[in-house]
């Protein structure tokens, strides 16, 4: 698995994500936001958490229009894998690669804690290391994680089995308890919780490991 992790000014989970990819056996390259091209032969692009461009205007809005994001969008349109975590999920909705938007948390507070996530589908190269219905413990750390989409979009996501994870105890007001969603081809994943912060025994939990291992398994044979 060859992974690229995008670094924006204000990204702060980029190295954590790189470590989690490496632990699963990936060859990882960091890519700067001003680069216009991804390195050759990349299987998956990781868009990390943080506060890209200071969250100015809207979370992820300016990152979504950065030079590297045009290449990331082209990579996704060619059928490449893209995974956006936290701020990365916000960037993916702003680029239009995933539907909906992330609003301010309903309680208006920044929330940093480990939450229960229900795996809604094992039918993706991200989630097939789990069983549908499994509940895993993964940290969240966000102020704008309240997933919003119109009723039609939510129904479509549910009908097409594209909700990857839901919260067992909704912390932020997200519609239908949605914590993470997949693209139509199931190769783009956006999620607010941080699996890369639950990928090593030193983190206090390893429930995120299965995601990176499943991905490495799928992309090793690709």
């Amino acid at each position: 698995m060859r992974a690229a992790v995008v670094v924006f000014p204000g990204s702060n989970c980029d190295r954590d994500l790189a470590v989690a990819f490496k632990a699963a056996g990936a060859d990882v390259q960091m890519v700067w936001h001003k680069d216009s091209d991804l390195p050759d032969g990349i299987d998956i692009v990781g868009i990390p958490g943080g506060f890209s461009y200071g969250d100015y205007l809207r979370c992820g809005a300016i990152a979504a229009n950065s030079p590297i994001c045009r290449s990331v969008a082209a990579h996704a349109k060619r059928g490449g894998y893209v995974m956006g975590i936290c701020n990365g999920f916000q960037v993916l909705t702003e680029t239009g690669l995933l539907p909906g938007a992330l609003l301010r948390n309903a309680g208006l507070k920044y929330i940093c804690k480990t939450v229960g996530l229900k795996v809604e589908t094992s039918q993706s190269d991200y989630t097939n290391g789990y069983n549908a219905g499994d509940v895993i413990d993964i940290p969240i750390a966000h102020h704008d994680g309240n997933y919003f989409a119109d009723a039609e979009t939510i129904a479509r996501l549910q009908g097409e089995d594209r909700v990857a994870f839901t919260y067992t105890d909704n912390p932020n007001g997200a519609q239908a308890d949605i914590a993470g969603i997949l693209s139509e081809n199931r190769r783009v994943l956006g999620m607010m919780p941080h699996p890369e912060r639950a990928a090593d025994a030193g983190h206090g939990g390893t429930d995120g490991q299965a995601l990176f291992r499943a991905l490495a398994g799928a992309l090793a044979s690709a």
């Binding site: 205007l57 809207r58 809005a61 300016i62 229009n65 909705t93 702003e94 539907p99 909906g100 938007a101 609003l103 919003f148 989409a149």
Partner: peptide
């Protein structure tokens, strides 16, 4: 349309 507003919300 392109940047200043997110017309989803």
């Amino acid at each position: 349309e392109k940047l200043l507003a997110n017309t989803v919300i």
